[in-house]
Design a protein around this nucleic acid. Sequence first.
DNA 1: CTACATATTGAGAGTAAGTATCACATACAG
DNA 2: CTGTATGTGATACTTACTCTCAATATGTAG
Lengths: 143, 143
Amino acid sequence: MASETVRDRILAAGERITPQRDLIAGVLETAPRPLSASGLYEAVARLDPRIGRATVFRTVAALERAGIVEQLSLPGERSGYLLCATVGHHHHLVCQRCGKVSDLPEETVGPFFATIESDHGFSVDHASFSVYGTCAGCSARLV
Amino acid sequence: MASETVRDRILAAGERITPQRDLIAGVLETAPRPLSASGLYEAVARLDPRIGRATVFRTVAALERAGIVEQLSLPGERSGYLLCATVGHHHHLVCQRCGKVSDLPEETVGPFFATIESDHGFSVDHASFSVYGTCAGCSARLV
DNA sequence: CTACATATTGAGAGTAAGTATCACATACAG
DNA sequence: CTGTATGTGATACTTACTCTCAATATGTAG
Ligand SMILES: [Zn+2]
Ligand SMILES: [Zn+2]
Ligand SMILES: [Zn+2]
Ligand SMILES: [Zn+2]
């Protein structure tokens, strides 16, 4: 089901489906946490060594265009590629203990942007950020 | 004065002062907007062509350790290096029209993090983000 | 002021991410 | 089924760092 959904989302975005895209989306879909460029390339190459490096990056770009993949980037760290269940641009909570990434819903972020607009006269077009910390599950386990 | 202040901040952080660090900090200090890796390196090399590439990056790292420089990074864009007046880790509003970067004060960000903690049980350690949009000055000019 | 331990520098090689090119292959609309 | 727009793989290239190491400079202790 999930696999079909990703396929559908790719098609719905007007992007073509190819075996390579299917495979790469599958790798991202089953990864428990964001994959680095090399991690993704290696995982893909393990399943099909014929896939070229460029295809991996082009596919990630296509999946980003389709709103299926988000790229996380943090200063001083390698960026990570992440397949998101949430449709459209959004933000993330990244647990530094278990690596789990959860989507930050609009209703949490909206009021923050509203504050920025009212307090600073700054009209927000776009933001891309991830918040790092400890998730509820890991906090519970630490008690 | 500002130059002395940066020097003092470097020393206060337990980092050594060298002519190269002084020069690089000066370039960052006078830049009207964040400099890319190559932009910074070229600007520095113009003032002293003997400075090595590695020294530029090592100096930026030292200035980051001293809390003087922040690195902005956004998926799909080259990262930018920025000398901040605000001491300590903080966040930025980046105007997409004039390039101006302003510091986002803690009182704007704090309640947002508090919401994340209360709504998601996620305890925030660290976040690094920049919000892109149009600053008050540019908005006024557009009326 | 001098000497010394320790940190920093510059040159240059090395690594990793990502892009460009182009001949060949394939998805999919008609 | 066919044609064309699009995607693919090999490979070379670019950009952004990082590493190494001998030479040098810094700041401190005497
Ligand atoms: Zn997501
Ligand atoms: Zn966790
Ligand atoms: Zn700042
Ligand atoms: Zn502006």
